[in-house]
Write a protein that binds this DNA or RNA. Structure first.
Lengths: 226, 226
DNA sequence: CGACTGGTTGACGAGGGTCAAGGACCGTGG
DNA sequence: CCACGGTCCTTGACCCTCGTCAACCAGTCG
């Protein structure tokens, strides 16, 4: 996808109609560089593994999953990105992960090369370095989770992460289905469902619905995440 | 460890005597910044999780493991670093991982702040951004391994990675014990040992000794790594 | 030679995957 | 208004991979 015109790509299954696209460059104050606002429909692909990487994306609204696939279909989600997060930068102009919109997503797309060459953008390089280092640290934390924690600890850690990142306190709205949570935590969706039930039976959370979780005992939840 | 004088810290167990330390700053061509050569003995700590992060390290010789620990002792090694690699950079002046010398290690230590403030070092920031992005990519690949691959696939991937990184072709010298390989691959040392045996029985590798591996069939090995 | 670290192998069990069935919730259309 | 299809979620039964525990072996250094 070299020319960003993604909302046309509603290939996968039948999709709710994508919001209209406005491909006119706008001047965003952020990096003294023009950005293009883009809209993506639920489950549509923002970029895929192996594609040429021309743009950096900043989320305006919605949630994005970044993942890698094995040839036989096994999938590992390496991160969920929320509004304000940036993603899509690569060293060598090739995407080594793919990114998809979990629900309807609005992003700002920045042209990668113009950002780096732009002389007034040394602040941008520092910002990018910071964000990349933070991303590296979160990914290292996730390695510990995948390599050494059991299913219950993983789900507890996930819920804590989501509570913290969404800035909510007790009530938590999950943007993603069980299957995505499973692929993020290195589990199956059945195990994720069972661990939800276990936390519920222990009186630590309350399931208003599958996507709407209330944390009843944050202390205990944090203790379970080890 | 704010003042680098590490070879004195031979705390853990009885250690082979550390090579002498030469703490005089030298001018290395690399980043137009002075570096301090340091030596670390086998199993000695270069820095620990939670410590203040003042230096960036570049390996001259030896192998370093970077890891995170759970309170109950479970450990995840997030990376092995070989000569030429850099490690130790953090966003917020606090180390979120620990680093230890696997065998005797020589590094060059660069003062972190002086590198970033130095006006002539914008090249350094770009280099650091590149290295961090590469590190992030490798860590994402490792997430896929830990989250979705089985024991045999993990060991095969590890051997391929080591062959590639050491630049060797058939013969591979492993710097680390089974326990470290296990903590890198999210397995136990027994399982690692069994997978070595399995690859050996399949005629894919030959174990000259525990640390000396010959790859007999690279094709098959790559096929096993999925 | 003895102590120590590191590695291999076996027996057994548990945690989580697989397979299967059914329930809850939603928007659409008759 | 309700039936219908689709997506998502839950729960149960069974099984397999890998962890645990234990014994033993190999190499090395004093």
């Amino acid at each position: 996808m070299l020319t960003p015109n993604p909302a046309v790509e509603l290939s996968q299954t039948q999709m709710p109609p994508a919001p209209p696209v406005f491909p006119q460059p706008r001047d965003e104050g952020d990096f003294h560089t023009s950005s293009v606002p883009l809209n993506f429909a639920r489950n549509s692909e923002i970029f895929a593994e192996g594609e040429s990487a021309g743009y950096v994306y900043k989320i305006v609204s919605g949630v994005v999953r970044v993942s890698k696939l094995l040839p036989d279909g096994r999938r590992q989600i390496s991160a969920f990105h929320l509004p304000g997060d940036m993603f899509g930068f690569e060293v060598d102009d090739v995407h080594h992960v793919s990114a998809e919109a979990i629900g309807p997503v609005k992003v700002l797309a920045y042209k990668w090369q113009s950002l780096l060459s732009n002389t007034s953008s040394s602040g941008f390089v520092h910002e990018l370095l910071n964000r990349t280092m933070i991303g590296l640290r979160q990914t290292q934390d996730h390695l510990l989770l995948l390599g050494r924690k059991n299913a219950l600890e993983r789900l507890a850690a996930f819920l804590i992460e989501m509570v913290r990142r969404t800035g909510s306190d007790r009530s938590l709205q999950l943007a993603m289905p069980r299957h995505d949570i499973a692929d993020y935590l290195g589990l199956t969706l059945e195990t994720v469902s069972r661990m939800f039930a276990e936390l519920k039976d222990a009186g630590i959370i309350k399931l208003e619905s599958a996507r709407q979780v209330s944390v009843l005992d944050m202390q205990k939840l944090e203790a379970m995440a080890t």
